[in-house]
């Protein structure tokens, strides 16, 4: 059992339409990849909205079942997990981190409630002191402490602190896999890198594998080991992150990379080029004048 997670030709399709014109829509289409247990890594899934990345994450978390294909976690087929004991055991090893930390926590409950509840259910702690020790240990791993969080309501913490608390909660059961769905897109710019750097620490120090779902190619490049790029449910390109992003091959990956705005292109009129995705000069259509006008502005300083 050297494989942590095997996703084997997984497809999820949804039916739409009524009596007439019934059709199916493949949200995830024949996706396969493997994470090794011996080598924890940050595995990134990149794609635009509607590309099926969240559906895939939900299947890995066993929240929805694939239409076809199998997902095995440490050799166990997720479909075969029956009964609360087996489910709890699975949840102990695979934990989610969600996008918006402000929505994850109930605003009327204190944040520590979630930490204590997770410690009671998964870490087998029952005495208050034990529960608090578990919560504090997990918070220390993310650079917080129980003293900072205890008795606080979600609105009293910043977005970065809340997201780190959410990660601490996910760490209490001692998971081997975290599934993080757009974990930094709602976090302030000055705190974003603290979360991203934290993932790296978790991988190196706690040897936790992380499935990092994002549409932000820049942070993906910064932390991931391997990457898959999805478009409309299909994996169009996969491989080591730097290699893929430095030199993308598939037209969609190239388009994605070209769409990433960078501070290096200040005043180069890059936004005027949005329509034209790589292939040669902008075609001269009736609207060509309008499309190229923005480029004609000299932007020298």
């Amino acid at each position: 059992m050297s494989d942590l997670l095997i996703v084997d030709s997984v497809t999820k399709s949804y039916a739409f339409g009524g009596l007439f014109g019934r059709g199916t829509f493949k949200a995830v289409d024949n996706v396969s990849f493997t994470l090794e247990a011996a080598r924890p890594e940050i595995f990134t899934i990149v794609g635009e909205s509607g590309s099926g990345k969240t559906t895939l994450a939900r299947m890995i978390l066993n929240l929805i079942a694939p239409t076809s294909g199998t997902i095995r976690f440490r050799g166990t087929d997720l479909n075969a997990i029956r009964g609360s004991r087996a489910r709890m055991d699975f949840m102990r090893h695979v934990q989610p981190i969600f996008q918006n930390p402000f929505e994850v926590f109930n605003p009327l409950k204190k944040v520590d409630h979630y930490l204590f509840m997770t410690a009671r259910r998964f870490a087998g702690a029952s005495k208050t002191a034990e529960v608090e020790a578990h919560a504090d240990a997990a918070l220390q791993k993310v650079g917080l402490s129980l003293a900072e969080v205890k008795g606080r309501f979600p609105h009293e913490l910043s977005g970065g602190q809340l997201q780190r608390t959410a990660i601490a909660r996910a760490l209490i059961p001692g998971p081997s896999l975290l599934v993080a769905d757009e974990p930094v897109s709602m976090v302030d710019a000055s705190l974003r890198m603290s979360i991203v750097n934290l993932f790296r620490t978790l991988r190196d120090d706690l040897r936790v594998s992380i499935i990092y779902i994002t549409h932000d190619l820049a942070t993906a490049y910064y932390i991931s080991d391997r990457i898959i790029i999805m478009q409309k449910g299909v994996v169009v390109e996969s491989g080591p992150a730097r290699q893929v992003l430095d030199n993308p091959q598939h037209p969609y990956s190239i388009l994605l990379k070209e769409s990433v705005l960078s501070p290096e292109t200040i005043g180069e009129g890059i936004l005027g080029l949005a329509r034209h995705t790589g292939e040669g000069p902008p075609e001269a259509s009736a609207e060509g004048g309008a499309a190229t006008r923005t480029l004609a502005q000299p932007r020298s300083s």
């Binding site: 000055s190 974003r192 992003l245």
Partner: peptide, 9 residues
């Protein structure tokens, strides 16, 4: 300074 960029590690 903290902006991540492609090609910058």
């Amino acid at each position: 300074q903290s902006l991540p960029r492609i090609g910058d590690l």
